[in-house]
Computed example of a mutant assay.
Amino acid sequence: MLRILFVCTGNTCRSPLAEGLLRIRVHQEGLAMEVRSAGVSAMTGAPISRNSASLLQEAGFTESISSLAIQASEVKWADVILTMTMGHKRTVIQRFPDAVEKTFTLKEYVEDDHQVLQAIEEREKLVTEVQLKQALSQTVTVEERNRIYTLEHAIPDYDISDPYGGSLEVYRQTAKEIGGSLDKLVAKLRRQKEGPQTGK
């Protein structure tokens, strides 16, 4: 049973949409999966946004979701943590360093371009080294700064747009953006599931 935790800021707009829309797909596909969501700055028990709730209802999701502040128990529960932005990913890793190997942005996790994935890995490593140098008051070289800049421009924008405060149509665009990534996620999980059986 795969356990996925989606993370955004307040757990009222994007991550509840991702949770609900994936749970619909899990039910349709018959996948062995549990899905939850949380926020890095959430207030536990608060209602999700009216527009997110409306879109989930429109999609056929009938269960109730309320916001949850991310905590160690949720991080430990999850097999994979999928954030809505790179900023959320960094916040999760800073707060829960043990989760570094299982935390990705949603778009990054479903990326299938090998060169892009290599650039992401190199950038993350370089950024960590530079942050460590800065913490130790060591000089960051021009070459290091230039390499990070080059890598940043080789990587697509993995942030999912924030609809907070927007109209239903703005939320609909975000839901469409999330839905496209969830389709790729389900296809990826299906391939992983079929792999051993088909010898692929």
Results as ranks from 00 to 15, higher is better:
Ser54Met: 13
Arg25Val: 09
Gln115Arg: 12
Tyr164Asp: 03
Gln118Ala: 10
Lys184Pro: 00
Arg50Phe: 01
Asp98Met: 14
His88Glu: 02
Glu152His: 04
Cys8Glu: 01
Ala42Gly: 12
Met33Ala: 03
Arg23Ser: 15
Ser66Arg: 13
Ser54Val: 11
Gly20Lys: 12
Val110Phe: 03
Gln94Cys: 05
Ala78Glu: 03
Val170Trp: 00
Ala46Arg: 07
Thr150Trp: 04
Pro163Ser: 07
Ile178Tyr: 06
Arg172Phe: 02
Met1Phe: 10
Thr85Glu: 04
Val127Ile: 13
Glu152Pro: 00
Leu21Cys: 10
Thr141Ala: 06
Lys188Tyr: 06
Met1Glu: 13
Leu2Glu: 11
Val92Asp: 03
Ile160Pro: 03
Leu117Trp: 00
Ala99Trp: 07
Val110Gly: 04
Lys176His: 14
Asp159Ala: 09
Gln173Tyr: 11
Lys107Met: 09
Thr141Met: 10
Lys133Met: 14
Val142Tyr: 05
Lys125Asn: 13
Glu194Ala: 15
Gln173Ala: 11
Thr44Glu: 07
Met33Gln: 07
Pro163Met: 11
Lys76Cys: 04
Met84Val: 10
Glu111Ala: 12
Ile48Val: 14
Asn51Glu: 11
Arg190Phe: 02
Gln173Trp: 09
Gln192Cys: 02
Gln118Tyr: 02
Lys176Phe: 08
Thr83Cys: 06
Asp98Tyr: 15
Lys102Leu: 04
Val100Lys: 13
Thr83Pro: 01
